[in-house]
């Protein structure tokens, strides 16, 4: 409880300081804003922007479009990454080829793919999906491979003596045994996917749908910094929510079962 109070107080003070410095309390006789609203808008205009555009449905619609891109791209990345990671763990030749490729491309921020994606796919959904997949795939692949390689061989031996064939062992022993690694890879993949999609949406305008990142881009074009900051808040909120809803329960379960980790 004390820790929660600490967090809440901290953020309240942060916003309060922001409000004071940007003149939100000028009507109470406090000083006017230190900066022009084009540099740093007060929290009230940001809140106003978020409220109005949520009420008129623009933000919910763009979030729907963005999340759809994110989910589809992420799922494709997972569906490709997990089996490829398993292959790379199992076969040396896959490790030496695809594994090396993954290692190299993982070091490349996936926004670097945007120029090529635009040439290859045009300004379409496919271009955005491609960038998201490039963000997800490699880290999922590598952590799946790493997880499978770290499974103690005794598990597979024990399973064999109990009658498991190779496929049964793979699905019911090696895969669950590497779950802690796979889940942390999925989490990292999600973070990369989210970052790369935002970068791509800011970078590329796609007529098929106006995503949240594009609002940020037009906020900049129109010098509406309250819009830019509002969208930044939304991006943070989505990232946090995904973490809490998707990954925290899975991680908590893993920690409980394995007896690892925190607190």
């Amino acid at each position: 409880m004390k820790r929660l109070t600490n967090s809440v107080c901290f953020f309240a003070l942060l916003i309060l300081a922001w409000a004071i410095l940007t003149g939100d309390f000028a009507f109470l006789g406090m000083p006017e804003s230190l900066w022009s609203p084009y540099v740093l808008p007060p929290p009230s205009t940001v809140a106003q922007y978020l409220w109005d555009n949520t009420a008129n449905g623009k933000i919910p619609l763009s979030m729907l479009i963005t999340l759809r891109r994110l989910l589809i791209g992420y799922l494709i990345g997972l569906i490709l990454g997990v089996p490829l990671g398993m292959l790379a763990a199992r076969f040396r030749c896959v490790n030496d080829t695809l594994g090396m490729l993954a290692l190299g491309l993982q070091a490349l921020p996936s926004v670097c793919w945007v120029p090529l994606a635009c040439i290859w796919f045009g300004q379409t959904e496919a271009a955005l999906l491609f960038v998201v997949i490039m963000g997800t795939l490699w880290s999922v692949l590598l952590s799946t491979q790493n997880g499978m390689k770290n499974v103690p061989p005794i598990y597979a031996r024990a399973a064999r003596t109990m009658g498991s064939g190779p496929l049964h062992t793979l699905i019911f022993v090696t895969l669950p045994a590497s779950a802690p690694f796979v889940v942390s890879g999925m989490k990292q993949g999600w973070a990369f996917a989210w970052r790369s999609l935002m970068a791509a949406e800011i970078y590329v305008s796609v007529v098929s749908g106006f995503g949240i990142g594009q609002y940020l881009h037009y906020g900049r074009e129109l010098q509406r910094m309250y819009q830019v900051i509002g969208v930044m808040f939304i991006i943070i909120a989505v990232g946090l929510l995904a973490d809490k809803i998707l990954f925290s329960p899975a991680e908590a379960w893993l920690h409980r079962r394995w007896g690892t980790g925190k607190e």
């Binding site: 598990y155 031996r157 003596t161 022993v173 669950p176 007896g259």
Partner: peptide, 13 residues
């Protein structure tokens, strides 16, 4: 034939 191993080879998941 069933084997009981020296380390605990129980499945933690």
């Amino acid at each position: 034939r069933m084997v009981m191993f020296q380390e605990h080879a129980l499945f933690p998941w």
